[in-house]
């Protein structure tokens, strides 16, 4: 690793001011950033650790009925504390990586990184969540802007994420067995005004909504509803784990499984 300093602010305001320094970089759970630093793919002058900020921790149900999760909340905490409010989201969190990774990795870190094969982007887009930062609120539909690219500005911090709680939801992940990332995974959520379907691990452009499946499932919320639908594999990720055509096929299969899991 290159050398850098580390600061651990205890408030969002102090973190924002620390991030104003030249070449400063936010550090949340570090489960992606620390391996990146080891490979010398990043060279910050100072890391601003967000793990000591109490106001960014925890899971709570707001008066509106929405589920709010602090940006610094670990996957393990979401898995445990969101289970009674939004079971599909808790199950997704409990399936990320392995137990040790879930005890460090955070929802804010995952969404800020926007790995094209990560789980949380599918939940946030599939739920129509709101990404709350220190300066504004961003709808998930506007937030994800392609592989490893988001609407976040330099130095902007995800302080919390607000999820409308659906009537039913399910997540089906075809796991890449070595990394436990999604080879392809689909999140399906049914709301009073329609169904949302978000796909991760498949597209070269990162997480996306499968609108044809949304229309079909909005009129008939059953696995059979998407039986005749298919996607092109042309813009899908193609690597040694699977071709674009294979991933396109998996999207259909995982969508059916996600609907079946939603019950």
């Amino acid at each position: 690793m290159y050398s850098f300093d580390m600061v651990r602010p205890t408030s969002v305001a102090d973190a924002v001011s620390a991030l104003g320094q030249e070449e400063a970089q936010a550090l949340s759970g570090g489960q992606t950033l620390i391996p990146t630093l080891k490979q010398r793919l990043a060279s910050p002058s100072v890391l601003v650790s967000l793990t000591g900020i109490a106001e960014m921790q925890g899971v709570c149900r707001e008066d509106s009925g929405d589920l709010a999760i602090g940006g610094g909340t670990t996957h393990a905490t979401v898995a445990a504390e969101a289970a009674s409010i939004y079971p599909a989201l808790a199950k997704l969190a409990g399936g990320i990586g392995d137990p040790a990774v879930r005890n460090r990795g955070t929802i804010g870190g995952s969404l800020a990184n926007n790995d094209p094969s990560a789980c949380y982007p599918a939940a946030a887009l599939g739920s129509g969540a709101t990404i709350v930062t220190n300066t504004r609120e961003i709808a998930a539909d506007d937030y994800f802007q392609g592989m490893f690219t988001t609407a976040l500005e330099e130095g902007e911090i995800i302080t919390s994420v607000r999820f409308p709680v659906p009537e039913a939801a399910g997540y089906a992940k075809f796991e890449q067995p070595a990394s436990r990332f999604a080879l392809t995974a689909v999140y399906v959520a049914k709301y009073a005004d329609g169904v949302r379907v978000a796909v991760t691990g498949a597209s070269e452009n990162g997480v996306f909504r499968w609108t044809e499946a949304e229309a079909a499932l909005s009129s008939n919320f059953s696995p059979d509803a998407v039986a005749g639908l298919s996607l092109s594999g042309d813009d899908m990720i193609s690597d040694l784990h699977g071709t674009g055509a294979y991933r396109a096929h998996l999207v259909g299969v995982m969508t059916k499984r996600a609907v079946a899991a939603a019950g």
Binding site: P35, L47, S49, P99, V101, N103, R104
Partner: peptide, 21 residues
Amino acid sequence: GACNIHVNGSLVKACTMFAAE
């Protein structure tokens, strides 16, 4: 996972956490 330790009672990989944290 050969470097697993407990920090405040939680299992973590010590190779993927800084001492300052």
